[in-house]
Design a protein around this nucleic acid. Structure first.
Length: 232
DNA sequence: TCATTAACTGTCG
DNA sequence: CGACAGTTAATGA
């Protein structure tokens, strides 16, 4: 963990919550107190059950957020990338982290302490208001997710997951540029690695997707959407 | 070269 | 559909 933090003023992440409110005078006092560090690929930087360390903003890289399930199985709760917030649940209400988070590639994170965050929430109403809207939207998303996992079959869940990953990370050269193993996809779709592999190979035969090594490219997004759409 | 890991396949309950 | 066993290919110590 090194001290040399990216400067918010010259940061290019326009969708970062901090960056968005940088024009407010009060924010200037807080951004100088943030602490940034690089998290190496596959390293965990939030441990479930550990004391809360504040809020993290992704400056560069990709992160998976995870909850440990019934029989020790991981459930990927969300995937995050540049400009996203990690660890925003339960701060203020709980002393312990409710989720774990690890880097999918070398990732730079900006960290604000709990105390600083609470102070920002109390003193910068514009920020608090926007965060409130953000929470509402996130709640809606996770409610949608509950329904998906409960009501869709495995094939549909895998397709849905692939579409989500595509929406989130985009595609370059026809390939989604993210290092997710089949197990990760399974943990996200709420199924097992083997099932994911089977769905992926049949999707490949149907020319809906292609694979290059472990990476995946979507070839027919429309048809994939059509299979899901009846369940929305 | 050997050991480890991940993708994949087959089969059973 | 999930669990388990087993094969194959890539990677790296």
């Amino acid at each position: 963990m090194k001290k040399e933090s990216p400067i918010c003023d010259s940061c290019l992440n326009e969708n970062c919550f901090i960056k968005k409110h940088l024009h407010l005078e009060q924010m200037k006092n807080y951004i100088i107190k943030k602490n940034s560090f690089v998290c190496k690929k596959s390293q965990q930087f939030i441990i479930e059950g550990a004391p809360i360390q504040g809020l993290y903003f992704v400056y560069k890289g990709k992160v998976k957020t995870v909850k440990t399930g019934i029989n020790g199985r991981e459930q990927i709760v969300r995937l995050t990338t540049v400009g996203d917030i990690v660890g925003f649940r339960g701060f203020g209400t709980s002393n312990r982290c409710l989720i774990g988070a690890s880097a999918l590639e070398d990732t730079t994170l900006c960290n604000f302490t709990n105390e600083d965050m609470l102070e920002i929430l109390r003193n910068v109403p514009e920020f608090t208001f926007d965060l409130m809207l953000f929470y509402a939207e996130e709640l809606n998303k996770s409610e949608n997710n509950i329904r998906k996992i409960a009501q869709m079959n495995v094939r549909e869940r895998v397709i849905d997951t692939l579409l989500y990953i595509h929406r989130k990370f985009g595609q370059s050269n026809g390939i989604i540029d993210v290092d997710l193993s089949r197990r990760d996809i399974a943990d996200f779709a709420g199924t097992t690695e083997e099932q994911v592999i089977r769905v992926i190979s049949s999707l490949k035969k149907e020319l809906f997707i292609k694979t290059v090594g472990k990476k995946i490219g979507l070839l027919n997004i429309e048809k994939m959407r059509l299979e899901i759409i009846e369940h929305k």
